[in-house]
Design a protein around this nucleic acid. Structure first.
Lengths: 331, 331
DNA sequence: CTGAAAGCGCTAACAT
DNA sequence: ATGTTAGCGCTTTCAG
């Protein structure tokens, strides 16, 4: 197959060690040697073998981005795309590569979890099996949990302030004069759902608004579910004048239902989404939504993971990013 | 750090070899031995080291999905998401994992391309540097090109019939009575752009329709560019009654422009998109578009790559998938 | 069914 | 600046 470091060494007259250094620590090798080595390598079509290197260095320069199956069918949905992108950028900068894995891609015939590939660190996106986290950590593989929180020792969580985000949403609707505010709540992980729920309830309470359970729908966080749910709301004898959707996809579905019912946005129905991913710009009118700085979440998760990989002490267990109201056309 | 196969062997009284077999070829080990081995492994928190395994087997069980930078900012844009997903599914099934890499993540200090990580095969998505392909192939690493075509020896390309797709689009518009048909052409790779261009021109010619260069806009394949281009078209003294957009994102932008101009879809302006990714369902009215079976493209690319990895002979150099018209609300 | 031993290709002391 | 050497953890003949 490919040639090895020995072939190159023979060809150029230097030793294995020097050839190795020419790639790993170019500064420690004379210009003359490097020239000869690179030339020999080129003629032999040699390329350092990352596996062998990882073997001896006990370090792969790979990390894994593990995303939960439930996010399917869009493994990389609009929310996680920019996150992955930011993570990849951080990794590339450090010479790392990233595995994208589905949480179930880690099984062993005997039923155990299997850390199938060797990686220096792991980022779990959204849902994460505590078992898996524990196993990883027992192997001394640092773990960062992104957009989710679990109170586990040695686990760093990077989240957004979804409670506050929900409050912003409701407050904004209130400021616009709405007093009947519904909720289209996607079935996310408990923490996220709860935070947004609580924000919604607390904000209503704060304004002395009543909670009408018929205006609250727990649905799949999908376009179709959002559309159906809004259709149901529209059919109610007494319907809300505004709805807070717990993600942009659901909001897009809701918009469709409103438009299809021949009603106007925001006059007949105001809508606030959540995430501010690119769906919010696709819809017309554009979506008022709560921005979560996904790129920043990804970047921080990656940076913190690298700190952990470098065995820096963990100074905090949870990093919470602020959210922000973005007003556009649906309110 | 983690314990090794030797630790397990010592603990359970069997040899390294048997422990190894208990994981790699369970059938060749007695039940009794397996029980003891797994128990010992569990107590020692042992997990096979994939790197060491890859080293001796000369096989990593990894493939790389390489996507061109230009696709940024959305590394995983709506078109490639389902493709990656399908690829991951095929890989998981075979115990493979996938690296997601950006085409520039493969450099060496000396400027050469560097096959940074060891992988058994590579799928290039969209644009691909022929240099890189050649280097990979010289290392005996099979390559599949997805959604692009290059006439290189030993290169398998999986593409969709974009020429025909463009023809479907124009024909459909013609059937709907349109005689003034514009084109919003995204700047994709030459092959793809050309195919869709040619389809558009040939279809027009076939119907004896005239080509008005002012109705043809070459733009970035982005939402904003689509919107601006449509706005320009709308401002023309003599404007087209329908427009073919070479992807759904551009079409979504075009829709926004039409709606914002207070015009109706499809009465005042008909629009056909391209790809049929999930954007086409988000917009309202939903987008008439040309479906490319992205999941199938991904699946086939992966399957063929595995054939190549298994050193099966390559029976064809190009696999072309059909496209299909999907009629929805914008025409 | 199990064991002994020889590497896979590279890096990292330790020398020179 | 360069060379020597001892493994990294595992699989795989080859024996038994």
């Amino acid at each position: 197959m490919g040639s090895t470091i020995i072939d190159v060494a023979k060809k150029c007259g230097y030793s294995k060690a020097t050839v190795s250094r020419a790639y790993a620590e170019p500064d420690r090798v004379s210009e003359k040697a490097k020239l000869k080595i690179y030339a020999a390598a080129k003629s032999l079509n040699y390329t350092p073998n990352a596996i062998a290197r990882a073997m001896v260095r006990q370090q792969t320069e790979n990390i894994a981005f593990i995303i939960h199956e439930k996010q399917s069918p869009a493994v990389l949905n609009p929310f996680y795309s920019p996150i992955l992108e930011a993570i990849m950028r951080e990794c590339t900068r450090r010479g790392y590569s990233v595995f994208v894995i589905t949480n179930q891609d880690m099984q062993l015939p005997n039923g155990d979890l299997y850390i199938k590939k060797q990686m220096d660190g792991v980022i779990f996106a959204g849902e994460a099996n505590p078992q898996a986290i524990k196993q990883l950590q027992e192997q001394n593989i640092p773990v960062v949990l992104l957009n989710n929180y679990q109170d586990l020792p040695n686990l760093l969580c990077v989240v957004a302030d979804h409670y506050q985000g929900a409050i912003y949403a409701v407050n904004h609707l209130y400021d616009r004069g709405h007093r009947k505010i519904g909720l289209l709540a996607g079935r996310f992980s408990p923490q996220i759902r709860e935070a947004r729920y609580n924000g919604y309830f607390d904000a209503l309470a704060q304004h002395g608004l009543r909670v009408d359970s018929r205006w609250i729908q727990n649905i799949d966080p999908s376009l179709e579910a959002g559309e159906e749910a809004m259709a149901r709301l529209l059919a109610l004898p007494e319907r809300p004048s505004a709805v807070f959707c717990t993600n942009d996809t659901v909001a897009a579905g809701a918009i469709k239902a409103v438009l299809r019912a021949g009603r106007r946005l925001p006059e007949d129905m105001a809508i606030v989404g959540y995430d501010d991913n690119y769906i919010s710009r696709i819809v017309e009118p554009e979506l008022t939504t709560i921005r979560v700085d996904a790129a920043k979440m990804g970047r921080i998760a990656a940076q913190k993971l690298f700190d952990l990989i470098a065995r820096k002490p963990m100074d905090e267990h949870i990093i919470q990013l602020p959210t922000q109201l973005v007003v556009r056309g649906t309110t």
